[in-house]
């Protein structure tokens, strides 16, 4: 029978807390920037300019068709070799995370907007609104309802994506766990504790997502 020994691991609980906080920061940071990038990209995809549409689609394909870990490594190690400027691991990490989730958000926003009946756009335009105004007052408010479950889902995934930053030595939860492990040689306890902490973070979020989904289907 394996002898559990959480005591040794819990000695470094302060490291876990720091890791949790850093995870939280990168999550909030990348989600906020990702929303902004996603909105821009969504609007570009719907633009009448072929150039804008192509740039947006290319960006999305690159970030959706390559692994996040590879992107993170590339941003930190390879990009400086091309540009001649080195960037801090935190900059590389935040940038990559934001661009990654932004490409997915853009797709979710597009899906939401496309799910709104075409007649709504026609009605708005027929009163003299510009395309942007029709988006702002008529389409997007309705699209938000339709995209909320997918959006929350993607955001939950994003929390877990921050764990990949450990590969470039950013002190988020997974990195801290590996540090504790290398000090205590108790991977079982360390990583079980880490898993529990991620779970405690994300379970309320998924419950919230279910609640939102139920409330939305009621108001239909």
């Amino acid at each position: 029978m394996y002898q559990w020994d959480f005591y040794t691991v819990l000695q470094s609980f302060d490291l876990f807390v720091i890791g949790l906080w850093v995870t939280f920061l990168y999550t909030i940071g990348s989600i906020s920037m990702g929303i902004f990038i996603g909105l821009l990209t969504c609007y570009a995809r719907m633009s009448s300019s072929i150039l804008l549409r192509t740039i947006a689609k290319t960006y999305q394909e690159i970030f959706r068709c390559t692994p996040l870990l590879v992107q993170i490594m590339w941003a930190y190690y390879a990009l400086p070799l091309i540009t001649g400027y080195s960037i801090s691991n935190s900059t590389a990490g935040l940038l990559t995370l934001s661009l990654y989730v932004g490409s997915f958000y853009a797709e979710i926003f597009r899906g939401g907007v496309n799910a709104v009946d075409k007649g709504q756009t026609e009605a708005a335009l027929s009163t003299g609104m510009s395309k942007f105004q029709s988006m702002q007052f008529v389409i997007f408010p309705q699209a938000i309802k339709k995209m909320l479950p997918a959006f929350i889902n993607q955001s939950v995934i994003q929390v877990k994506n921050t764990s990949l930053l450990y590969a470039i030595s950013i002190g988020e939860l997974t990195y801290m766990t590996s540090v504790i492990n290398s000090e205590t040689y108790r991977p079982m306890e360390a990583y079980s504790l880490a898993a529990v902490m991620y779970f405690l973070m994300l379970y309320p979020l998924t419950k919230f997502a279910d609640h939102v989904e139920r409330k939305l289907s009621k108001s239909d």
Binding site: Q120, A123, P141, K145
Partner: peptide
Amino acid sequence: GMVFQHFNLYPH
């Protein structure tokens, strides 16, 4: 102005 066959009122 225009009035449509399927009304197209803003549901929200």
